[in-house]
Amino acid sequence: MPFKPFTDYLLLEKNYSALTVKAYLNDLVRFSEFVKSEYDTDDVSQVNYLQIRSWIVLLVESGIANRSINRKVSALNTYYKFLLKVGDININPLAKHKALKTSKKIQVPFSEKEIASVLDDAKFKDSFEGVRDKLIIELFYSTGIRRIELVELKLTSFNIHNKTLKVLGKRNKERIVPLLHAVSTTLEAYLKKREDLPSISDEEILFLTKKGVKIYETLVYRIINDYFSLASSKVKKSPHILRHSFATHLLNQGADLNAVKELLGHSSLAATQIYTHNSISELKKVHVNTHPRSKK
Rank of each mutant, 00 (worst) to 15 (best):
E61M: 09
P239M: 07
I52A: 00
K234M: 08
V288G: 07
E174R: 00
S68L: 08
V44M: 08
T186P: 11
L168W: 01
L12S: 07
L263T: 07
I64W: 05
A182K: 00
F128I: 04
D196W: 02
V86A: 00
I280Q: 04
L139R: 06
S201A: 11
F246E: 10
K113P: 00
Y141M: 11
R146G: 04
T186I: 03
H287N: 08
Y24D: 13
I69H: 04
S62E: 00
F128R: 08
T290G: 09
K123S: 04
D126K: 08
N159G: 03
S267L: 02
T20G: 12
R71E: 13
N172D: 06
E129H: 12
N289R: 13
F110I: 10
N70P: 12
T143K: 03
V21P: 01
R30D: 14
A75P: 06
K163G: 01
S238H: 04
E112Q: 15
K81R: 08
S199A: 12
L250W: 13
V57R: 01
S17C: 07
N252Q: 07
I91S: 02
E203F: 11
L12H: 12
L58Q: 09
R194L: 05
E13I: 04
T248D: 05
L242Q: 02
R67Y: 00
A270C: 05
R146S: 01
K154A: 02
L10F: 14
K173H: 11
I200E: 13
N225A: 04
V118F: 02
N289D: 09
Q273W: 11
K295V: 07
I274S: 05
F6Y: 06
I223Y: 06
H291Q: 03
N90G: 05
Y16G: 01
R30M: 12
I91Y: 13
S199D: 15
K22D: 11
N172A: 01
V131P: 00
K113V: 04
L58H: 05
D8M: 14
R171N: 14
I115M: 09
L83W: 00
E217A: 15
D133P: 11
G130E: 03
W55Q: 05
A23P: 07
K113N: 07
K284G: 09
F207I: 13
I200F: 14
V220N: 03
K14S: 13
Y216D: 08
K193T: 10
A231Q: 03
E203L: 04
E282T: 14
K72E: 09
S45Y: 06
S199Y: 03
K98D: 12
H266W: 02
L94T: 10
I205G: 05
K285S: 14
A189R: 13
E114D: 06
K81Y: 00
L76T: 04
N172M: 06
I52C: 10
K237S: 10
K193L: 05
S201I: 02
P5N: 12
V118H: 02
I52N: 01
Q51D: 02
A247P: 05
L283M: 13
K36P: 14
N278C: 08
D133T: 10
E38V: 15
E282N: 14
V57D: 06
K193A: 11
